[in-house]
């Protein structure tokens, strides 16, 4: 026997959580684009999406965020901090790759400095993940040693029922249990089997790729130029990525007052590493693409013991020139180590 949440009861759950002061967020598709967005009713969710176009990252690390306000006066400078809104949230229907992405970035945001903008949101958000029962040509979680029903980064894992009328409930953390205690009377015991999880073919051998990347002589390989020749240098891949986390500070205002903001930045941009002298250590697009791959599969695991990729495939799915991590790692796995 497992605990079951019936789809018919979801609207009541949404209402209950909202009454309890939670902002309820989930996969939503409007006419042209999809994202994780706040809803008022369960009917607004769209669980048919493979995954929303935009990753879950923006709910924890927004594309632009005010950090502090400053006023320069005759004798002094006044500053005041911004803090993230203290709202409590529940994300219902996260994908396992998105939830994993958050767990991957936790050590980064808490490494030499604890980023409260990130952790305040992490601490007040319940993540209810729905295991995937379908995948598309770009999904690659299994190549990253994850699975379509991964529990990584989730507070509750739901498995869709075979009859498509609800989900099996697996509570994973105290935060998840607390949120589901709110709706305990709306759950039932049942023996309805879960639908099989999606079959995601392994697209490359990660260990082979990592071994190649770790060899110092491959840093200067002509491979990088060949594989990235068609890269146009936009930030679609990095900005849609659930784990890419680079940002830039900008002061917006006039000479006397303004706001300091934290904005997404991307290693794809030429400006990203431009020195004030005009020298750019990553002068070419191939050096920038190499950095993205090296960072995710060599430098990041070297520091945090985990790859900075959860296999969602958005980088390839949305690339204007059909590039992405999959193609690059597939090509690397065929090279001589």
């Amino acid at each position: 026997m497992t605990r079951i949440l019936q789809s018919d009861n979801l609207d009541k759950c949404v209402a209950r959580w909202r009454e309890a002061g939670l902002t309820v967020i989930g996969p939503v598709k409007n006419e042209s684009s999809s994202s994780y967005a706040a809803v008022e009713k369960a009917a607004e969710f769209d669980f048919s999406l493979i995954m929303p176009d935009r990753s879950i990252k923006e709910l924890f690390f927004p594309q632009t965020e005010p950090m502090l306000q400053y006023t320069i006066k005759k004798q002094r400078i006044d500053t005041s901090d911004f803090t993230p809104p203290p709202e409590k949230r529940i994300i219902f229907g996260a994908r396992p790759c998105d939830a994993s992405g958050l767990a991957i970035d936790d050590p980064l945001f808490g490494w030499d400095y604890k980023d409260n903008f990130w952790f305040q949101r992490r601490d007040t958000t319940v993540i209810v993940t729905i295991a995937c029962t379908k995948a598309d040509d770009f999904c690659m979680c299994t190549s990253l040693k994850l699975v379509p029903d991964s529990t990584k980064g989730s507070d509750v894992l739901l498995r869709p029922l075979q009859n498509n009328k609800g989900w099996q409930v697996e509570e994973l953390t105290d935060r998840g249990r607390d949120a589901f205690n709110e709706i305990a009377d709306l759950l039932q015991d049942g023996s309805e089997p879960a639908a099989p999880t999606a079959v995601v073919a392994e697209k490359f051998n990660l260990d082979t790729c990592v071994a190649w990347l770790q060899k110092p002589e491959n840093f200067e390989s002509t491979f990088w130029r060949e594989i990235s020749m068609r890269c146009i240098g936009c930030a679609s891949c990095t900005f849609l990525c659930p784990t890419c986390h680079c940002f830039d500070f900008q002061d917006e205002g006039d000479t006397y007052s303004g706001i300091r903001r934290k904005n997404w930045d991307s290693c794809s941009f030429a400006l990203f590493t431009m020195h004030t002298s005009g020298h750019n250590p990553r002068a070419t697009q191939s050096a920038r693409w190499r950095q993205r791959i090296m960072h995710k599969f060599n430098y990041f695991p070297g520091k945090f013991n985990v790859n900075s990729c959860s296999g969602c495939g958005r980088c390839s799915r949305q690339c204007p020139v059909d590039m992405g991590i999959t193609e690059t790692l597939q090509a690397i796995s065929t090279l001589q180590p």
Partner: peptide
């Protein structure tokens, strides 16, 4: 409001 300033429009 959806723009994320990835500059894919410019680069393409």
């Amino acid at each position: 409001s959806r723009c994320i300033k990835c500059y894919a429009c410019r680069q393409a």
